[in-house]
Design a protein around this nucleic acid. Structure first.
Lengths: 136, 136
DNA sequence: TTGAATGCAAAGTATTTGCAGTTTG
DNA sequence: CAAACTGCAAATACTTTGCATTCAA
């Protein structure tokens, strides 16, 4: 049922948000169970855990390869369904000695809501956009 | 002095590791001060905060544009000094409604150490980052 | 009936914050 | 001296875990 709820939305809820969602259908469920099943589902490859932004982790019901865009102000995450060509994995492998398993592009920006409201929020994202904007 | 220590290494220490490093020179410094200054330095654009992997955040003394590669097993981070061409910011902007500020590519893989040791470790010692994992 | 899954609460990890004392210009 | 900074400890935010209980095959 956790999986169902996660697949039902196209947002990227945190464990806590999912807890609230699932609890509407399963009022006695506990947060611990949410976390435990989120782990299981992640390891089973049914969902994706998104580690970025704040310490809080978000989850993605879609495992199909796609990238994300994160609002540097409110931490909201949206999907960036766009194809990015990166075929330099082998080179990185040589340069770093790592065995590369994959890669993920994260775009940073301001979501429509934060973009419109110029007023400062409780905590302005202290983050400076990390990305080099390389042009072709 | 925090900045000095961070710039001295080419690893990506956590606040706690930095605390241990700095404390060798400033024995009375507190963790709170480390965090506070790390925030200031990040907002000033002197360093970069890396949000990925575990809940723990790591810091990068280099602000020059580059990407990272993270070991999915031990969470170690190395630099991927390689140019990635991405020329689709405007398209993402249209598709998502976000105002794009930048992007960052994260490669995932196994670091040389974890790659060699197939056995799973309970919790890899969070060694003080003096030894660089890789150099470029 | 037995192993797996759960609720609950306590513990754990990483980070932030209040405050009084200290330093700096 | 005022403003900024610090140590310390308490507080916070999120996640994990132990254990007794419940569930399902």
């Amino acid at each position: 049922m956790i999986l169902e709820e996660l697949r039902r939305v196209d947002s990227h809820p945190s464990a806590d948000e999912l807890y609230l969602m699932v609890r509407r259908r399963l009022p006695r469920i506990s947060l611990g169970t949410i976390y435990r099943n989120l782990d299981i589902l992640t390891e089973a490859g049914e969902i994706r855990r998104i580690d970025s932004g704040s310490t809080l982790k978000r989850f993605d019901g879609t495992t199909a390869p796609h990238h994300h865009i994160r609002c540097v102000r409110c931490d909201r995450i949206a999907d960036a369904h766009i194809e990015v060509k990166i075929d330099i994995d082998e080179r990185i492998q040589r340069l770093t000695g790592f065995r590369i398993l994959g890669h993920h592009v994260e775009f940073l920006g301001l979501c429509p809501r934060c973009h419109t409201q110029p007023a400062a929020q409780p905590s302005l994202a202290p983050e400076i956009p990390t990305a080099p904007v390389t042009r072709t």
